[in-house]
Structure formats: C-alpha cells, structure tokens
Write a protein that binds this DNA or RNA. Sequence first.
DNA 1: TTTTATCATCAGATTTTCTGATCGGTATGT
DNA 2: ACATACCGATCAGAAAATCTGATGATAAAA
Lengths: 303, 303
Amino acid sequence: MISLKQLRYFDAVAREKHFGRAAEQCAVTQPALSMQIQDLEQQLGTQLLERGRRGVMLTESGREIAERAAKVLTDIRDIVDFARHQGDVPAGRLHLGVIPSIAPYILPPLLPVLREQYPDLDLHLRETQTQHLVRELLDGQLDLLLLGLPVEDPHIETAALFDDRFLLATSKSHPITANLRATPEMLEQDRLLLLEEGHCMRDQALAVCDLQRVGNLDTSGSSSLSTIVQMVANGLGITLLPELCLDVESRHGAINVIRFADPEPSRTIGLAWRRSSPRKPHFVELGKLIKAVGNRQPPAASA
Amino acid sequence: MISLKQLRYFDAVAREKHFGRAAEQCAVTQPALSMQIQDLEQQLGTQLLERGRRGVMLTESGREIAERAAKVLTDIRDIVDFARHQGDVPAGRLHLGVIPSIAPYILPPLLPVLREQYPDLDLHLRETQTQHLVRELLDGQLDLLLLGLPVEDPHIETAALFDDRFLLATSKSHPITANLRATPEMLEQDRLLLLEEGHCMRDQALAVCDLQRVGNLDTSGSSSLSTIVQMVANGLGITLLPELCLDVESRHGAINVIRFADPEPSRTIGLAWRRSSPRKPHFVELGKLIKAVGNRQPPAASA
DNA sequence: TTTTATCATCAGATTTTCTGATCGGTATGT
DNA sequence: ACATACCGATCAGAAAATCTGATGATAAAA
C-alpha cells in the first residue's frame, strides 16, 4: 500500500533532485528516504527517478507522478487547514429546527444577523412541532432545535435563552378589555382558541388554565397563531399569545393584548441538541445571538 | 503527521457508519481502526464522528473532510493506475533528437505512424549535430537519439536499426555517369561537396575516401543535403548521398545517383539513450517502427 | 591516483501499528 | 426489570514498519 510518507519523500526529491538534501528537508536520514522511494517505485511498478552522475533526474512517469503527488499533498494540507480553522466559529451546514410558534417571529430578524456574523454558516431550516423536531434531532437529520423548554430526553442537552411571557388577547370590543391585568380565571369566561393538537404552545396554554377544561375550547384548533389572531379580532374567542409574536401579530391593532397579573405565565425558549454533538460551543454562541434578537422584541405591551 | 491509512479507515467508516464493518472492509480489527480514527481526529483537532446509539454519524466537519478524503483517495488510486499502466506502451513526453541527415527523410513518414500507434506519446523533436545531441542526452534534455552509430560513451546504450548505403551523386552531364558501379577513387576526380564541419555524414564520407584529401573539398561546407544536391545538379561538384534521402532528393531527376561497387560503403542508423534510462523497452519498441519506416524507403537506385 | 560526492545496502534499534481480550454503555427483547 | 446483544473504547503484549549509523559501490573531480 502506497503511503503519504512515500509521496512526501518523493516530492522532496523531485524538488531537490538530491536524496541527501531531500532527506534533510524531511528530517530523516538519507537511507530512510532512499528506502521509502524504492518502496514507492516498487509499489507503482515504475522507475520514478534516474539516478545519474549529474544528481538525480525524474523519469517521464516520475515527472507526471511528482505533479500528481504534489497536488495530493496540497489537498492534504488543505484538509488539515480546514479542520484546524474549523471549530473557531459556527460554519458549515447546520440543520436548525424551529417550532411554528417561534419561527415566524424570531427568524425574520435573526437570519440577516446570522448571515452577517457567520457567512460560512450554511443554514437549513425546518419548521414543525416539537415531537417531530426531537425525533429528527435524534435521527441526525437536524442538528439544533429552537423551541420551548423543557425537552426531556437523556440524549438531548438544552440551554435556556429567555422567557417569553404569555399575554391575553381579546377583541377590541371585548368587555374584559378594561382590566389592567388579566388572571387565569378570565380564560373561563370566553371561548379559548388554541393551536391544533401537538403544538407545545397549546399544552402550555392549557397549563396556564391550570385545568383540563375542554368545555369552552375550539375543538378544531388552528395551525398558526396568525389565524387565531384573525379569529380573535373578529370576536370568535380569546387566546394566549406569546410576547414574542406581538410585534407582528398586534401591528394592525385589531386586538387587545393584556398582561397577566403576577405571577405572569410564560414559556422558556431555548436551544436543544444531541448530547453527543461536538458543536455545543457553536450552539451556545448562536444562543447568545438568538437571545439578543429575542430581547429586541418589544419588552412589554398593554394595547 | 496525518497518514493515508487514517484517511482510508475514515473513508470506510464514513461510508459504513459502523466501525466494525469498516474495520472488516479494511481488513483490520476494530480496535486498530478505532485508534487510527482517534489519532486522525486528534491530528485534525476536530471531532469527525458522533458516536451515538443509532450507529455512527458524521459531524459537519466530518462530512466535509470525508468528501475531501474520498477525493484524495481517488487521486491516489489514479496515481497507482497511471503508474501501473505506464510502461506497457511508449507514452508521455519523449524528447527525441535526430541528426540533420536523417530527420528530413525519416520523420515525414514516421510521425504519422507514431501518432497512430502511440497516441499518448507526446513527442518533442530536436534536430542538430551528433555532438550536441549526445550532450543534451546526457544532460537529460533529450531522452532518445536517432543518429549514425557508433556512439562511444560509457553512459550511452545504442541499438542499430538498419544500414544506410552511400551513393555517388553527380550531375546529369557528368562523365562518370556512364559507370554502372562507382568506386572510391572516383571521388578524387571532382570537387567533393560535403556538409559543414560537425556533421557525422561529413566524417563518414571522408572515411569512405580512405584518406584526408582536403584538396578538392569545398571548404565552406553546407548545412543541408538539399543544398548540396542543388549544387551537384548544377555541376558544382559531386557528393555522397545516403540512400535514405533518395526518395526526396532525387525525385526531381536533376542528378544521377550511382551505387558503389562492393563493398558498398554505408552508415549504420540507430538509436541511443542513457544507459540509466528505464524506458529501454519503449525505445526498442520504437526502434522496430523506425526500422520498418526506414526500410520502406526505396531499397536501391541506380539512376 | 586520490578524494569527494552520491545513492544503495545492511543490521540492529526504535517506533508504530495491530491483535485479542475486555470494559462500559446503550438499546432490545422477554 | 432483567438478560442479551451490540458497539465502540481501552489496554497489554506481539508483530511489523521504519529509522539510524556504518558501510559499500560507483562515478566524477582534483
């Protein structure tokens, strides 16, 4: 089997046209180099060098093979360089999964920042529900998740980024609009509109109600907060909105948004990755950026 | 130092996603492969593989490096293939030196044949006098010479191809035209036109005369047989022509050409190469071709 | 002729690499 | 819950490869 060492030695000889100097360059003795060259010639079944009185000269095969060898050695150097300067900064392909109740609100401001900060990062996005994200993460189809914590899995490590308060959203004409602070009890007074089954925000919203009252729930469920906001605006019910989405969803002013009385219910947004992933430092790095973007969202709102 | 073995093992793992099977493919035990992979990862300062419960998966760096490694391994295979299928047939760059009294007559028919028989042969031609050819051969600037033998040099090996008879060329109106066979003595009767100093044919022609008569020599000498033939045709003297050139030089019928009486004087055309050259088999091969082409020249001539 | 330069060869020392046994951890099936 | 199978890591000793330093052979230079 031909080895890189042989190519390195041969490359040195091809450049120096002299075994002694080549050996010196390679930091070995001349016999060692001689033997490797001979072995290489035997492996290749060709004489690469003409040992003559006027030093060494390359045979025709030798010339061609020296060129190819030099190219291989360059490629090898590139591999090492690439690997070494890897790790410094998030780069390469990164498959990021985001839940639907975050994606539309975090990604628009986040993506430009990412592109600027980490131009070598080749981001691939996937938006779906937590359970699917987790499975795809474990399967290796995704590398990193942005979702609501906690994620309970022994193979997954998470990092919290920031808390995202829940706010009560009602129609402009709704009677409870007068209140300064909402309470969970108010949720019982009207039909509660939630995302369809499987969305973590649905479960979190139900948790806020503290009980499994299915009575005043819209049974169908919607697949996006936007749709729910439209419904709320048209008096079809009330809902909980994450503070994160306010900037987008209340921009048109068609709904009222009321903060809860203390303790304000909230969800924790965080990152998740395979415990076995070596990119944790990058993920933490990215987390800082996402946190910064998340906090740049309006810090509070009451109308 | 990173080694090809490591890349080979890593490539196998990248394809198999399984240390055991990869090791089997590489015909080593799993620990051996494991250790090489670990060493590679350390050399590169990057984790290449994520060892997970669902088998092994490549990290992002791993994927990139696996691709590059595969490419390097392919290049290596190409080098070996190239080298192995080398030697079969004359190919690659070949610097051929030819003396001026052969080149114009052998090359026109030879080159098309060469191109057809050995399409991978990249022929570079040099036409000059023997002494220069020999020096350039020893210097490695030329690989093979086509010239008149013998060549006396301990570092040069030669192979005779065919004999090339000398013929006496006179003008149409010359009195000795009547003779059926020429003799060396006839050369004394008229001015002998020869190539300039340094051409082997000049020396060979003088040898035919058996003596160093400079009396009736054209002192200047010409640099090509064509010119001499013109001079002969115009009655400026006589000359010796190699049979090889007849087809070209007597085509126009402006001169008379007479064979010598036995023993017919001749020169031996042959090949010469550095004794240290590994391409001797190719040269012998090429020699057969040149011989065939040389013999296809008119076998004799008397007018 | 002697000297110098250069690559090849050789034996023994050194280093690298491999094997075979074993460990620890995880997933799977009962 | 337990037993089992699987997988990669680890380790010590064996085997193989590589290197060194001395020497040889040959050709060019002095």
